[in-house]
Design a protein around this nucleic acid. Sequence first.
DNA 1: CTCACGATCAGCT
DNA 2: GCTGATCGTGAGG
Length: 215
Amino acid sequence: MESLTPLSRALCERPVRELAAALLGQRLVRRERGGSLTVGRIVEAEAYDGPAGDDSAHSHRGETPRCATMFGPAGHAYVYATQGRCCCVNVSAGAGKAVLLRALEPLDGLARMRRRRLARLGDGPTRRRLQSPGGAHELAMGPGRLCLSLAIDRALDGVDLCDPTSPLLLAAGEPVDPAEIVWTPRIGLNPRLASHGWPWRAFVAGSRAVSPPRG
DNA sequence: CTCACGATCAGCT
DNA sequence: GCTGATCGTGAGG
């Protein structure tokens, strides 16, 4: 059983790129009714710098109902729906800034994670990979898959990730040595997201759970 | 009200 | 590397 020392609010109030780096190695913990815990180690994170200088942030035109959590206190979960299929979860960092959690290395509750992923899959190669013994690292590889594995949806938007009693929280793991952190431009289908040339995507070198670049 | 568009995923070529 | 699924969101009339 993982210990549940929550991450401090002060950490989440640091500049977003520092926060993205500091989140690597920490735990994302999902506590469901009945007390079951699903836990992953954060291995990939992406910083969004808010309305001032970041056109690709959801907050780039100011506060809207969808992204209101980004303008609330730091350390809360900003969860939004994408394509109606799945959600993505961010750690709010105040003033419209946030860090998107892109990938976890599964630690606890692997059976629950696999069950929830398989429930969404047809009879294709992905199903067979996830069922194979070496397939566990793929369970939460990618921002949408991460949320599917941990049963994160819009109902969790706004929960306090620094509160040890929350259904979703950040807990202390092992910080990652800065030398092990790789920075790259953002990835995704929208070329605009990488157009800044900013190396704002941080991931743990060598992690098998890091989502591969696309396009 | 209408409409264009994704911070994605899965499956196939 | 390319396409379809599928729908919330936000901008504009």
